[in-house]
């Protein structure tokens, strides 16, 4: 099967008072249609920036934005902003931003809010759009009579569902969800995850979903991408990843998860992620890596692994 999304050497740098922030620094990965990828990593490593880069939602202080993004083989980076807005954003790729549930417009009814992307991005009449919105409510498990309520009348879980419905209403092919359940309770999170499991099948969605919770990432992921300091240091299929990740960072990350059913004393990774303004040369993880050796002073190679690829000198085949 050919690839649905191919990202090659994607860069997104920001210009700030303190210097250039290399938030996305040469990222490449590929997804097949219908696959779900979990994007995990510590806070500030560039997860949200990567999603914004794919959606070309660039802040004003963008310093560098380049690379290749192919959708079904077509490089959409070459599209003009106008064409990208018309044909791609919210039409083929849609988005549930971080903390979306708190960003709903408080004075617009839930139904109108869900219908809005349809009206703006496609030529749908208001009636049709509202009809579609009602269907979306059903899909995300919101009672039908909520269509006329205002966001503040909804619980957090319901508002998050509304944000998801807004992303799905245009029948996109690819959905990017940024921390969709982080702010929610365990039971609500489990419910939304259950719903997402159905929805992705029903709509044949390709899914990128960002989380810092590795346990939750396993709820949907066919692929796992581990991001560290602006780079994807490991990309792997879920089976191999959760059995035994290849990159030292992934390993530590996985072993730092306190498990409920198995007894395994959780460990922690010493130190903090580096600044993205002056990331360390060579391997960016070297200051925290227990396996560090001489070679790590140079940029590690991308080595293919059982499940995908990883960037680490240890894995280099001699």
């Amino acid at each position: 099967m050919s690839m649905h999304l191919e990202v090659e050497n994607l860069y997104l740098y920001y210009k700030t008072l303190k210097g250039i922030v290399k938030a996305v620094d040469g990222v490449s990965f590929q997804l097949k249609r219908g696959e779900a990828m979990a994007l995990i990593g510590e806070s500030g490593c560039g997860k949200s920036s990567l999603s914004r880069a794919i959606l070309r939602l660039l802040p004003r202080n963008t310093y560098k934005y380049e690379g290749v993004i192919k959708l079904d083989g077509e490089n959409v980076m070459e599209y003009s902003d106008e064409k990208f807005r018309r044909d791609i954003r919210w039409v083929k790729i849609s988005y549930v931003p971080q903390a979306a549930m708190n960003a709903l417009n408080p004075v617009i009814k839930v139904g109108d809010q869900i219908a809005e992307p349809l009206i703006i991005h496609t030529n749908t009449s208001k009636e049709e759009a509202l009809e579609k919105a009602a269907k979306m409510l059903d899909i995300v498990n919101i009672p039908a009579d909520f269509i006329n309520r205002y966001p503040f009348e909804l619980s957090g879980g319901m508002r998050q569902r509304v944000a998801i419905a807004m992303a799905l209403v245009t029948d996109p092919e690819l959905v990017i969800m940024d921390e969709p359940t982080s702010a929610l309770d365990v039971l609500t999170q489990a419910n939304i995850m259950n719903e997402m499991k159905d929805i992705r099948k029903k709509m044949n969605l390709t899914l990128i979903y960002i989380t810092h919770d590795i346990s939750v990432s396993s709820e949907l992921a066919d692929k796992v991408a581990v991001m560290y300091a602006g780079e994807i240091v490991e990309f792997s299929d879920a089976e191999s990843f959760f059995k035994e990740p290849s990159h030292p960072y992934s390993k530590l990350l996985l072993y730092s998860v306190p498990t409920l059913r198995v007894d395994r004393e959780p460990i922690y990774i010493k130190g903090q992620p580096p600044s993205l303004i002056d990331p360390p040369t060579g391997c960016r993880f070297k200051d925290r890596c227990p396996y560090r050796f001489e070679k790590c002073e140079e940029k590690p190679p991308t080595v293919s692994t059982n499940g995908g690829f990883a960037k680490c000198w240890l894995l280099e085949k001699r």
Binding site: A36, V186, L187, Q189, A190, M193, N194, K197, I214, S215, V216, S217, S218, E219, L220, A221, D222, A238, E239, F241, F242, K243, L254, V257, T259, L260, R261, V262
Partner: peptide
Amino acid sequence: NALPDPDANNRFVKR
């Protein structure tokens, strides 16, 4: 029940 542990099989079952 609601809490997953990291496990690749999670995606095939509902909680």
